[in-house]
Deep mutational scan, measured.
Amino acid sequence: MASQGTKRSYEQMETDGERQNATEIRASVGKMIGGIGRFYIQMCTELKLSDYEGRLIQNSLTIERMVLSAFDERRNKYLEEHPSAGKDPKKTGGPIYRRVNGKWMRELILYDKEEIRRIWRQANNGDDATAGLTHMMIWHSNLNDATYQRTRALVRTGMDPRMCSLMQGSTLPRRSGAAGAAVKGVGTMVMELVRMIKRGINDRNFWRGENGRKTRIAYERMCNILKGKFQTAAQKAMMDQVRESRNPGNAEFEDLTFLARSALILRGSVAHKSCLPACVYGPAVASGYDFEREGYSLVGIDPFRLLQNSQVYSLIRPNENPAHKSQLVWMACHSAAFEDLRVLSFIKGTKVLPRGKLSTRGVQIASNENMETMESSTLELRSRYWAIRTRSGGNTNQQRASAGQISIQPTFSVQRNLPFDRTTIMAAFNGNTEGRTSDMRTEIIRMMESARPEDVSFQGRGVFELSDEKAASPIVPSFDMSNEGSYFFGDNAEEYDN
């Protein structure tokens, strides 16, 4: 783990906690998980779902989305002020799938948001429990990260689609708070800032007046979040320049895209947490497990152990491969979309394939898809080993990566060399080191050039047997250095459309 220093740990961010010791953190995270579980059980009762239907990941996603929508204050306010045809701002819903006479049927349900809020609060001892809501947002974000390569979004903001390893959390809503900021990748933060800068260039009043003052505060806050992700002084200094700019424009845009590229080699610290679907927490609570009393951590053995003992089902389209669908969801559960496939294969105990080789589309089923041909199958979400999630980018030494994705962002704290394609990355730096950030740029390029592919990161860190909950005997895996390590390699994943 990167030293926490003055930073709060993510469990504290996750639970809005002030400084807590490890036991208190485990208890408050457990409380959050228990609340999600209780809410899910109650919703299944309301909807009269069978046990099997309640364990269907598509039903879980609909129920999670309903509660997130019920608590989305800004959108609710907007919907009330701008009524649109056929949208009731006070209601929320989605597809629920039921097994009827041996076939899967889709039923569109509609609930009062007020009623959903009441059920959620009741499951969370009367609190709004925003930490639990954020947790579900991060699960949705991790699922998107594993399912889609955001080529269009990258290109629109002047970045290269091969930089997708920097895009963790790119679909997280803005209201996801400190826990959300911690899991956002460098590219995601750059993209958010670039969008602001572009608006400022096109709209003279963007930075002016009372609204402009708020915009400015948001801009500086985002700059500080991004600065905190960088691990070298030169990158941090460049972020200070971007933040202090009187009138952010093209120079800042250039600096930010430069920094994003540099992060492929001088990786930023991005938190990883295993956020599971509500249909995993519900049955665990129903079986009598007391998360608050037992304590829970999002970055240790607990999620692995929970998945070892969970039964989750998914709808499967006619030509999809259930094992591939399982891999997709497994990666999402562990926030591992940008991790090295060699490491993932070792931990999972079966070969993890790149996205383009998977015969599976996303987990969600569109409303126009034919239910007649839908089957369902068990998702295999178990693992051979477990490993500690990392909050750091690993040290800054790398190795060759593949054509589709030119770097990785480690999820697990496991000893290995970190793949990246130096030639491709360095070719993108057209040696432009003039301007006010020239000395920093020169320094950053120097550090990137001296990074050695064969150097090892996370020295001495290994994986653990599932029986080793105290992480007492690390097993340090050895990897084939020459092997392909990137998930979005030469990829044809669908595009994420909101």
Rank of each mutant, 00 (worst) to 15 (best):
residue 1 M to E: 13
residue 4 Q to N: 10
residue 5 G to I: 00
residue 6 T to S: 07
residue 6 T to Q: 06
residue 8 R to F: 03
residue 9 S to M: 06
residue 9 S to V: 12
residue 10 Y to C: 13
residue 14 E to K: 11
residue 16 D to I: 05
residue 17 G to H: 05
residue 18 E to L: 05
residue 18 E to W: 07
residue 19 R to T: 01
residue 23 T to S: 13
residue 23 T to C: 01
residue 24 E to Q: 11
residue 25 I to R: 07
residue 28 S to F: 09
residue 28 S to N: 13
residue 29 V to K: 07
residue 30 G to S: 10
residue 32 M to N: 04
residue 33 I to F: 10
residue 34 G to L: 13
residue 37 G to V: 11
residue 38 R to H: 14
residue 38 R to P: 04
residue 41 I to H: 00
residue 42 Q to K: 11
residue 43 M to Q: 03
residue 43 M to V: 10
residue 45 T to K: 05
residue 46 E to L: 14
residue 48 K to G: 14
residue 48 K to T: 14
residue 50 S to M: 11
residue 51 D to E: 13
residue 54 G to R: 08
residue 55 R to Q: 07
residue 56 L to C: 08
residue 57 I to H: 01
residue 57 I to W: 08
residue 57 I to S: 04
residue 59 N to Q: 03
residue 60 S to V: 06
residue 62 T to V: 13
residue 63 I to T: 11
residue 64 E to H: 14
residue 64 E to S: 04
residue 68 L to R: 05
residue 72 D to G: 12
residue 73 E to D: 10
residue 73 E to I: 09
residue 73 E to R: 11
residue 78 Y to I: 04
residue 78 Y to Q: 06
residue 78 Y to P: 05
residue 81 E to S: 09
residue 84 S to Y: 01
residue 85 A to F: 01
residue 86 G to K: 06
residue 87 K to A: 01
residue 87 K to T: 12
residue 88 D to C: 14
residue 93 G to S: 06
residue 93 G to M: 07
residue 94 G to R: 11
residue 94 G to D: 05
residue 95 P to Y: 01
residue 96 I to K: 10
residue 101 N to M: 01
residue 103 K to W: 07
residue 107 E to T: 10
residue 108 L to T: 07
residue 112 D to M: 08
residue 113 K to R: 15
residue 117 R to M: 10
residue 119 I to K: 03
residue 122 Q to S: 05
residue 123 A to E: 04
residue 125 N to Y: 08
residue 126 G to W: 10
residue 129 A to I: 05
residue 130 T to D: 03
residue 130 T to A: 11
residue 131 A to I: 02
residue 131 A to H: 08
residue 133 L to A: 10
residue 133 L to V: 14
residue 134 T to C: 15
residue 134 T to L: 06
residue 134 T to P: 00
residue 136 M to V: 15
residue 140 H to A: 05
residue 143 L to D: 02
residue 143 L to M: 13
residue 147 T to Q: 15
residue 147 T to S: 09
residue 147 T to I: 14
residue 151 T to F: 02
residue 153 A to W: 04
residue 153 A to V: 13
residue 153 A to K: 11
residue 153 A to M: 12
residue 154 L to P: 08
residue 155 V to F: 09
residue 156 R to I: 02
residue 158 G to P: 01
residue 158 G to M: 05
residue 158 G to H: 12
residue 159 M to V: 11
residue 161 P to N: 07
residue 161 P to K: 08
residue 165 S to E: 02
residue 166 L to T: 12
residue 166 L to S: 15
residue 166 L to E: 10
residue 171 T to R: 02
residue 171 T to V: 06
residue 172 L to V: 12
residue 172 L to F: 08
residue 174 R to L: 05
residue 175 R to I: 02
residue 175 R to D: 04
residue 177 G to D: 06
residue 178 A to V: 13
residue 178 A to E: 07
residue 179 A to L: 07
residue 189 M to A: 12
residue 189 M to Q: 04
residue 189 M to W: 04
residue 190 V to H: 02
residue 195 R to Y: 07
residue 196 M to T: 09
residue 197 I to D: 07
residue 200 G to R: 09
residue 201 I to C: 04
residue 202 N to P: 01
residue 203 D to M: 04
residue 203 D to T: 01
residue 204 R to L: 08
residue 205 N to V: 06
residue 205 N to M: 03
residue 206 F to G: 01
residue 206 F to V: 02
residue 206 F to E: 09
residue 207 W to V: 10
residue 208 R to A: 00
residue 211 N to Q: 04
residue 212 G to E: 11
residue 212 G to N: 07
residue 213 R to K: 12
residue 215 T to H: 05
residue 215 T to I: 08
residue 215 T to G: 11
residue 218 A to Q: 05
residue 220 E to Y: 11
residue 220 E to F: 11
residue 221 R to S: 15
residue 222 M to W: 06
residue 224 N to L: 09
residue 226 L to V: 14
residue 228 G to W: 11
residue 229 K to Y: 08
residue 231 Q to T: 06
residue 231 Q to G: 14
residue 232 T to G: 04
residue 233 A to P: 15
residue 234 A to W: 04
residue 235 Q to F: 03
residue 235 Q to K: 11
residue 236 K to M: 12
residue 240 D to I: 03
residue 240 D to G: 09
residue 241 Q to T: 05
residue 241 Q to H: 08
residue 242 V to A: 04
residue 245 S to H: 01
residue 246 R to P: 09
residue 246 R to H: 06
residue 247 N to M: 03
residue 248 P to L: 09
residue 248 P to Q: 11
residue 248 P to E: 01
residue 248 P to V: 10
residue 250 N to S: 13
residue 252 E to G: 09
residue 253 F to M: 06
residue 254 E to I: 06
residue 255 D to P: 00
residue 256 L to N: 02
residue 262 S to C: 14
residue 267 R to L: 14
residue 269 S to F: 05
residue 270 V to I: 14
residue 276 L to F: 13
residue 277 P to G: 01
residue 278 A to T: 11
residue 278 A to E: 01
residue 279 C to I: 01
residue 280 V to P: 00
residue 281 Y to Q: 11
residue 282 G to A: 15
residue 283 P to Y: 08
residue 283 P to C: 15
residue 285 V to H: 12
residue 286 A to I: 14
residue 286 A to S: 11
residue 287 S to H: 07
residue 287 S to M: 14
residue 288 G to A: 15
residue 288 G to Q: 08
residue 289 Y to A: 11
residue 289 Y to E: 04
residue 290 D to H: 09
residue 290 D to I: 08
residue 291 F to G: 14
residue 291 F to E: 07
residue 293 R to T: 09
residue 294 E to R: 05
residue 297 S to E: 02
residue 300 G to Y: 02
residue 302 D to Y: 11
residue 303 P to L: 10
residue 303 P to G: 09
residue 305 R to C: 08
residue 306 L to N: 02
residue 308 Q to E: 07
residue 309 N to E: 10
residue 310 S to E: 02
residue 310 S to C: 15
residue 313 Y to D: 04
residue 314 S to L: 02
residue 315 L to M: 07
residue 316 I to W: 01
residue 318 P to H: 13
residue 318 P to N: 08
residue 319 N to M: 12
residue 322 P to R: 08
residue 322 P to W: 07
residue 326 S to H: 04
residue 328 L to I: 10
residue 330 W to Q: 01
residue 333 C to V: 12
residue 339 E to K: 13
residue 340 D to N: 11
residue 340 D to P: 00
residue 344 L to F: 11
residue 345 S to L: 04
residue 348 K to H: 14
residue 348 K to E: 09
residue 348 K to V: 00
residue 349 G to F: 05
residue 349 G to D: 07
residue 351 K to A: 10
residue 351 K to V: 10
residue 352 V to Q: 14
residue 353 L to E: 02
residue 353 L to R: 15
residue 354 P to D: 00
residue 355 R to K: 11
residue 355 R to C: 03
residue 358 L to D: 05
residue 359 S to V: 13
residue 361 R to D: 02
residue 362 G to N: 05
residue 362 G to C: 07
residue 362 G to I: 03
residue 364 Q to V: 07
residue 364 Q to K: 09
residue 365 I to H: 11
residue 365 I to Y: 04
residue 368 N to L: 06
residue 368 N to I: 09
residue 369 E to G: 10
residue 369 E to Y: 05
residue 370 N to A: 03
residue 371 M to I: 15
residue 373 T to F: 08
residue 374 M to G: 00
residue 375 E to N: 12
residue 377 S to D: 02
residue 378 T to A: 15
residue 378 T to Q: 09
residue 379 L to I: 10
residue 380 E to R: 00
residue 381 L to K: 03
residue 381 L to F: 02
residue 382 R to M: 03
residue 384 R to F: 11
residue 384 R to Y: 11
residue 384 R to I: 13
residue 386 W to Y: 10
residue 386 W to T: 05
residue 387 A to D: 09
residue 387 A to Q: 01
residue 388 I to G: 13
residue 392 S to E: 05
residue 393 G to R: 05
residue 396 T to E: 02
residue 399 Q to F: 02
residue 400 R to P: 06
residue 402 S to K: 03
residue 402 S to A: 07
residue 403 A to P: 06
residue 406 I to V: 15
residue 406 I to K: 04
residue 406 I to R: 00
residue 408 I to E: 00
residue 408 I to P: 00
residue 412 F to T: 01
residue 412 F to Q: 03
residue 414 V to G: 01
residue 414 V to S: 05
residue 415 Q to R: 10
residue 416 R to Q: 02
residue 417 N to Y: 13
residue 419 P to E: 07
residue 420 F to V: 10
residue 422 R to C: 06
residue 424 T to I: 14
residue 424 T to H: 07
residue 431 G to Y: 00
residue 431 G to A: 12
residue 432 N to M: 10
residue 434 E to C: 03
residue 435 G to Y: 04
residue 437 T to K: 12
residue 441 R to M: 10
residue 444 I to E: 03
residue 445 I to H: 04
residue 449 E to L: 12
residue 449 E to D: 12
residue 449 E to C: 08
residue 450 S to T: 09
residue 451 A to R: 12
residue 452 R to Y: 14
residue 452 R to A: 00
residue 452 R to V: 08
residue 453 P to Q: 13
residue 455 D to F: 05
residue 456 V to H: 00
residue 457 S to C: 07
residue 457 S to V: 03
residue 457 S to Y: 13
residue 457 S to P: 06
residue 460 G to H: 07
residue 461 R to M: 05
residue 462 G to S: 01
residue 464 F to Q: 05
residue 465 E to T: 04
residue 465 E to I: 01
residue 465 E to L: 00
residue 466 L to C: 01
residue 467 S to A: 08
residue 468 D to C: 07
residue 470 K to I: 01
residue 471 A to C: 03
residue 472 A to L: 06
residue 474 P to T: 12
residue 476 V to S: 00
residue 477 P to Y: 01
residue 478 S to H: 07
residue 480 D to M: 08
residue 483 N to P: 06
residue 485 G to A: 09
residue 486 S to Y: 14
residue 489 F to Y: 14
residue 489 F to A: 02
residue 489 F to G: 02
residue 492 N to A: 06
residue 493 A to F: 09
residue 494 E to M: 14
residue 495 E to M: 14
residue 496 Y to L: 11
residue 496 Y to V: 14
